Amino acid sequence: MRRAAFTAAVVAASVSLLPAPATAAVRSAEVCSIADPAVTEVSGLAVVPGGFLVENDSNPDPRRTRIFYLDEGCRVTRSVGYPTTARDPEDLAVDRSGTVWVADIGDNSPLMGGSGNRRSTIALWTLKPGAKSPKIHRLRYPDGEPRDAEALLVDGAGRPVIVTKEPGGEVYRLDTPLPTDNPEGAPLTLVGRFQPSRTGTANPLGVFGSALITGAAVSPDGTKAVVRTYSDAYEFDVTGGDVAAAITGGTPVVTPLPDEPQGEAIAYTADGNGFLTVSDQPGPVSIQHYPATRKASPAPARPAPSGAEAAPATERPALPALPGRLALLVGAFSVVGLMLVAAAARYARRR
């Protein structure tokens, strides 16, 4: 995501207004490194038989915005393109039937480094097993307003669930049949909100990194769901396949994901007992493995670390929900901040 420099400039101008984050220690292990130059800015990750599935974020060359199949050593074995331009893919998932879902849902405002041409609809792409090309399914938010989102889950009933990026992310679900090649966009239903916590986990964007929602996944057996920020993974118990209810009303256990350069993608391991992550950066980038923290009981858990490998559960005061998608920037800009923002935006456009 080429808006990283812009976002960092906004944070640099405003983070002094917010509490300084503490550092959380946790151990991750490198699985493999993606070195193929065709794979740039990975923002979605899934586990498939024999390896992994990743997708490129938006790219100045649409031909390089593709879905890539990797073997267990992170080597590209094949790739699939889109029949028409995918505007800003930000996450992906694989459902129980083996269908691949790509969430073409990114939509940064000009204030966050976007082009200014905000979209009236978003899209999901599905690639069924054996298909040579994905199908497009257009969706729209119920009030018709644009939103930036980077997190997709597919629930037990096969319904897509989208979580928007801003603090107090809105959780939307498609409650009607999935349409295909529909220019107008099928309306989503607002289910509730997911509220990250002020965890203090170290990350390049400081307290804002703990608030911005960048990815999500459902466990292979459908009993767990995880939503991540730039700094942490929030895991929920899922009952009856209702993912949206879990992440809007459940009590999560938090696994810190410290110091990832731009952590956006997350997936469950094949056995569902850990998380895989990768940063949205030009390559080479490494897929990292984290053991997932598990609840000891239905009550909010505070398990003690077991050696260096167990990630502590985190129970912190929630970040306040902010009304409106521009509330993130309230009080953040100063004259110096605006100068940094303008410079970063110019740099991003030149790339």
Rank of each mutant, 00 (worst) to 15 (best):
M1H: 10
R2I: 01
R2S: 03
A5F: 00
T7L: 14
A13T: 00
V15N: 12
T23V: 15
S28G: 07
E30F: 00
E30P: 12
E30N: 10
V31K: 06
A46V: 02
V48A: 14
G50N: 10
D57T: 05
R63C: 05
R64S: 11
T65F: 03
F68Y: 15
D71M: 11
E72V: 10
C74I: 02
T77C: 02
V80Q: 08
G81Y: 07
P83K: 12
R87P: 01
D91N: 13
V94G: 07
V94R: 08
V94N: 07
W101C: 09
V102T: 06
D104E: 05
I105W: 05
N108I: 07
G113C: 00
G116S: 07
I122F: 04
A123D: 13
T126I: 12
T126F: 11
K128G: 14
Y141L: 15
P142F: 07
D143P: 09
E145M: 15
R147E: 12
A149N: 04
A149I: 06
L153S: 14
V154D: 09
D155V: 08
V163P: 10
G169K: 11
V171G: 08
R173C: 06
T176A: 15
D181Q: 13
N182T: 10
E184S: 15
G185A: 09
T189W: 06
G192K: 04
G200K: 09
G200S: 10
A202G: 14
N203C: 12
P204Q: 06
I213K: 05
I213G: 06
A216M: 10
V218T: 15
P220C: 11
D221F: 13
D221E: 14
T223K: 15
K224L: 13
V226R: 03
V227K: 02
R228M: 12
R228E: 04
S231M: 08
D232Y: 03
D242N: 14
A246G: 05
P252G: 05
V254Y: 04
P261F: 04
Q262V: 02
Q262W: 09
E264K: 09
A265T: 12
A267H: 08
V278Q: 03
S279D: 15
D280K: 15
P282M: 03
G283A: 08
P284S: 10
H289A: 13
H289M: 02
Y290V: 00
R294D: 01
A299G: 04
R302A: 14
A304H: 04
A304N: 05
P305W: 03
S306N: 05
A318M: 05
L319F: 07
L319E: 03
P320D: 15
P323N: 14
R325E: 12
A327D: 11
L329N: 06
L329P: 05
L329I: 10
F333E: 05
V335Q: 00
V335C: 00
V336D: 08
L340I: 00
V341E: 00
Y347S: 04
A348N: 02
